[in-house]
């Protein structure tokens, strides 16, 4: 019973906060709701017995991405003020499209009989994860490091002040 309550709460927080992110008039409030949504997702990961992913979610999404976003909002301050309309003209179509997508996707994933297996999660997932990352997935791992370097250099080039 307890997991279901926790699941329900996390799902509610996640989806509620996500709705607030996309509808709030103040973009900075959206950013803080985004943090809440990320935290909700992290608790879903804990329920799914993936504590490592949960902690990484907090570390990267809240500790890095959300803070970067808040910073960017502060640097482009004029946009943050409340009097600007944050919604574009075709929002109603967007809402209908998103709702339609949810109905289709939700109906499909909910009605499908997934071939669930009953294996249990190994005790120490992190060790296995590390070994897999450096054996099977070593090439993507290395490419990811190149990607991070490229992003780092690129954002410095682009974000640097004019000379």
């Amino acid at each position: 019973m307890v997991p279901i309550i926790i699941f329900g709460l996390s799902a509610l927080i996640t989806l509620g906060a996500a709705l607030a992110v996309v509808t709030n008039k103040n973009i900075l409030h959206s950013a803080f709701y985004l943090v809440l949504a990320f935290a909700g997702v992290a608790s879903l990961y804990v329920l799914l017995e993936a504590p490592f992913i949960a902690v990484v979610q907090v570390l990267i999404y809240i500790g890095a991405i959300a803070i970067l976003i808040v910073f960017a909002i502060m640097l482009t301050r004029r946009i943050g003020s409340d009097d600007l309309i944050q919604r574009n003209a075709q929002w109603i179509w967007a809402a209908m499209g998103a709702a339609g997508l949810f109905l289709v996707l939700g109906w499909i994933v909910y009605s499908v009989n997934w071939p669930v297996v009953t294996q249990i999660v190994p005790e120490d997932t992190i060790t296995i994860l590390g070994q897999e990352l450096l054996s099977t997935y070593v090439i993507p791992f290395e490419v990811a490091s190149v990607l991070l370097l490229a992003a780092l250099v690129g954002s410095i080039i682009i974000g640097r002040e004019r000379e």
């Binding site: 902690v55 907090v58 500790g63 502060m74």
Partner: peptide
């Protein structure tokens, strides 16, 4: 006694940073 204790400590620190941002803003 979680398996990701060290990461947990680093991750939780992020909320402190967030609090500072919130307070300042």
């Amino acid at each position: 006694d979680i398996h990701v204790g060290v990461l947990y400590i680093v991750a939780v620190g992020a909320f402190g940073i967030l609090a500072i941002l919130m307070a300042g803003w």
